[in-house]
Design a protein around this nucleic acid. Structure first.
Lengths: 128, 128
DNA sequence: CGAACTTACATGCACGTGCATTGGATGTCA
DNA sequence: TGACATCCAATGCACGTGCATGTAAGTTCG
């Protein structure tokens, strides 16, 4: 019966919604209060930090876009905010001057490493 | 080890994020294109339609707020939009004139019932 | 009663987002 | 080489959201 199937998927969606909402709100609040970072800003730092462990992480905008659930424009502005805060630098790629390289600054890496435990703690609380 | 736990919950969160993002975007787009409804607008209609099957559904704002992941202000504006579109009516409660009763108009019920299959179809596609 | 508190909802405001567009760089093909 | 399509990133704009506040109605307690 349709109704049964409907209720089933409805419940799953409902549950996803609940988990997503609770977790993202808490992440947003704790990252903001404790480290002055929005969630998508943190995610950018996280990807950059992973893309080149040890040295300053670097990646192209397109790579970030592919790894994040964020539109091109939103990503562009997120990076602008990070740049203004001195956590990231933009450098135009020499071989393709349309593209940007992003680099984590020392301050950026520091901020990320400070925020990561907070982030992990929230996730553990919701998914452990 | 912390790292292992961290990776584990991270993967779960990642998956939740992926599912949420894909599903909500698709819901948003299909409801908007096909029925001129935003997702939260649809959710309000859905709750109203359930709160009193058969007759015109009615509920108080506070009840909706409790059932939805939406702030009080966002809900207020969502209902305003629905009211402007003639899908819902606000009526101040006689016994507590602070409170609003919300009623599904016939147009509202019609619109909801037209949109519901679209909604269900998307959910089935993502959760079946 | 009446003053202080609480509750329900609306509204001003700032902010992050997506869509559409723009501008500049690259690629393609005749 | 020149014309045209494609790609990358930034920006104008509209919109929905949350937070803080305002307003009006209810509640409590002396």
């Amino acid at each position: 019966m349709e109704a049964v199937v409907g209720e089933d998927v409805c419940a799953k969606w409902s549950e996803t919604l609940r988990v997503y909402h609770n977790t993202s709100c808490e992440l947003e609040n704790e990252l903001q209060d404790g480290h002055d970072l929005g969630l998508s800003e943190f995610e950018v730092l996280k990807i950059l930090s992973r893309s080149c462990k040890g040295a300053g992480g670097k990646a192209k905008m397109k790579e970030l876009e592919a790894e994040m659930y964020l539109s091109q424009s939103a990503l562009s502005r997120t990076v602008t905010r990070l740049e203004k805060d001195g956590l990231v630098t933009r450098a135009t790629c020499d071989f393709d001057r349309r593209a940007n390289f992003l680099m984590l600054t020392p301050a950026g890496r520091e901020r990320y490493e400070a925020a990561a435990p907070t982030y992990r703690a929230v996730l553990v609380r919701h998914f452990a």
